[in-house]
Nucleic acid binder design. Structure first.
Length: 149
DNA sequence: CCCTGATTCGC
DNA sequence: GCGAATCAGG
């Protein structure tokens, strides 16, 4: 794999979108090992992993309180499944990747948390992001000096 | 067995 | 630097 500036940008973009390493690998035509290996060497933020080397170091990050019941499993939710989900008034609801080619899908918040959502701005023509986020996602190689520690 | 990300180490 | 093999967990 030749890690051109473009390839690295793409990796960064997918990484920031919260895609799994395997998914990024599929999209880029490389293995997930290549993705995770490169991400590691680039010192990209380690995303919420299903695991963590907790076995060693004796220090454990204090287990998070578990949700006693999944929202999709309580009675009310099951009943609601009989009807298409209705967005409450004033709520912006969009599927991922996104409902429209003109809607920005920049991720906001931590993937997997209830707060996680996507930017709902107007995407630039031919791009998945609005102007603001496209400027973050696509950085000119020569302007990229001080990003990503 | 499917998946996840992390680390190691020969290249 | 690269990434397959391996590890560790869900």
């Amino acid at each position: 794999m030749e890690w051109t500036a473009e390839a690295i940008d793409q990796l960064r973009a997918y990484w920031a979108e919260g895609h799994s390493t395997a998914e990024i690998g599929r999209r880029m035509g490389i293995s997930k090992n290549a993705v995770v290996g490169k991400a590691h060497r680039l010192n990209l933020d380690a995303r919420p992993s299903p695991i963590r080397r907790e076995a060693e170091a004796g220090e454990r990050p204090a287990a998070q309180p578990r949700r006693s019941s999944s929202p999709a499993r309580d009675g009310a939710s099951l009943r609601r499944l009989e009807q298409p989900a209705q967005p409450s008034a004033g709520t912006v609801v969009r599927a991922f990747p996104r409902a429209s080619a003109r809607t920005c899908c920049w991720p906001l918040g931590e993937p997997g948390t209830p707060e996680f959502r996507f930017c709902s701005g107007d995407a630039m023509t031919g791009k998945p992001y609005c102007q603001e986020h496209a400027s973050v996602a696509y950085v000119k190689a020569r302007d990229r000096r001080e990003d990503a520690a």
